[in-house]
């Protein structure tokens, strides 16, 4: 089981999403794939936060990957991308913890205006490392008490998260965050039905 990415973002009331901080662990991917995979993980995180209502949690499955997301009532959102083996509850506990810590370090007024490079919050890589093994992190014991009664909504594909009329292919094509190489990567991977690609 692996955690690939952990990110915090702000979802403004009009629905726009700004990433505030992120960390990635992509050593299990090929050297030449890492750049594109990273772009795709950020792209996916953004799309999913945009389509998740305030005050809700969701886990979205896509091939062998699962994207866990939580958007709080104060518009702060956290996303974890893990493989399908990683326990869902631990992933959501991790999001909770990270969002709480983020709130205590960075004041609420700053969230809407800060850019990613200006955010002084450096503990994400540590969390990503520590939670790679869910048993060694303290998460297993804390799960029961930590997770509030918010229900986690499950989606079996990325497409089911999208709004009516939206298509993933179009979103990829239109995206500004993805380089030409990543877009080609997406297309060729889809054509050969490769298993080593997120999305």
């Amino acid at each position: 089981m692996k955690l690939f990415s952990l990110s915090v973002s702000y979802k403004s009331p009009d629905g726009k999403v700004q990433q505030l901080k992120s960390a990635h662990e992509l050593s299990s991917f090929g050297y030449f794939q890492r750049g594109s995979i990273r772009e795709f993980m950020e792209f996916t995180s953004k799309i999913i936060v945009e389509r998740t209502a305030v005050c809700s949690r969701a886990s979205v499955k896509e091939q062998d990957y699962i994207c866990h997301v939580s958007v709080r009532s104060d518009n702060l959102a956290g996303v974890v991308i893990a493989d399908h083996e990683y326990p869902q509850r631990v992933a959501h506990t991790l999001i909770n913890k990270v969002l709480d810590e983020f709130t205590s370090k960075i004041s609420k007024q700053q969230w809407p205006v800060l850019k990613e490079s200006e955010v002084n919050f450096t503990t994400l890589p540590d969390y990503l490392q520590k939670y790679q093994n869910p048993k060694e992190s303290d998460a297993m014991t804390r799960i029961q008490s930590d997770l509030d009664e918010t229900k986690i909504i499950l989606y079996n594909t990325m497409e089911s998260v999208l709004q009516r009329g939206e298509k993933l292919d179009d979103l990829v094509e239109k995206s500004e965050g993805l380089s030409t190489q990543s877009k080609t990567f997406y297309k060729t991977a889809k054509k050969t039905n490769s298993c080593c690609v997120i999305l």
């Binding site: 030449f32 794939q33 080609t184 297309k187």
Partner: peptide, 9 residues
């Protein structure tokens, strides 16, 4: 020590 295909069509 590693070899891969780069998606440049």
């Amino acid at each position: 020590d590693e070899y891969d295909v780069i998606p440049v069509t």
